[in-house]
């Protein structure tokens, strides 16, 4: 019985995996940190799962004059932030754009981002076959003061 259950569970897992694999790039939990008036920049975060080996090349948003992909690292208690050309998206692996790692910098903000605002983001990804696609994502703004470890 237990054996049967395990078998069934495995079969279901395989099935759901292949369901994802058939789909296109999956983006979940997209959020942007809210800002205060006069603040011209903020970060956007999300989880991206690509069905095959791909790369995230570009992010655009109508709320910002410029959007860049950055990577943060802390070495010897020193916080560093660098623009990166791309983020590798290995097949089936959930890649986190989260505080402490990769994130999207939204610069030259046109308006204050208030908690609860829906922020449109356009992601440009490319597969190994050099075929590019764009993905439209809606990120929800979380309060500026909300802890980074909110999930």
């Amino acid at each position: 019985m237990t054996y049967l259950k395990t078998l069934l569970a495995t079969a279901l897992t395989v099935l759901s995996f292949s369901a994802i694999a058939q789909n296109t790039v999956k983006v979940t939990d997209a959020w942007v940190r809210a800002t205060v008036p006069q603040q011209k920049a903020t970060g956007a975060f999300m989880q991206i799962t690509a069905p095959k080996n791909m790369r995230l090349l570009e992010v655009r948003s109508t709320v910002a004059g410029v959007a860049e992909i950055h990577e943060m690292s802390t070495v010897d208690n020193m916080m560093r932030m660098r623009q990166v050309k791309e983020v590798p998206l290995p097949a089936g692996k959930a890649v986190e754009l989260q505080p402490g790692g990769y994130h999207v910098m939204l610069l030259e903000l046109k308006n204050q981002v208030k908690a609860g605002d829906k922020i449109p983001l356009t992601l440009v990804v490319e597969g190994e076959d050099k075929h590019r696609e764009t993905i439209e994502v809606t990120a929800v703004a979380r309060p500026l003061g909300s802890a980074a470890m909110s999930h």
Binding site: R33, V36, Q39, K40, A41, T42, G43, H70, M72, T74, M79, M81, P99, G100, H103, M105, L144, G145, S146, A147, A148
Partner: peptide
């Protein structure tokens, strides 16, 4: 600095906590 997307708000959130 306030344009900081990550470390500074996190440090301040920790201060709130």
């Amino acid at each position: 600095f306030t344009q900081c997307p990550d470390v500074c708000p996190t440090a301040l959130s920790r201060a709130v906590e």
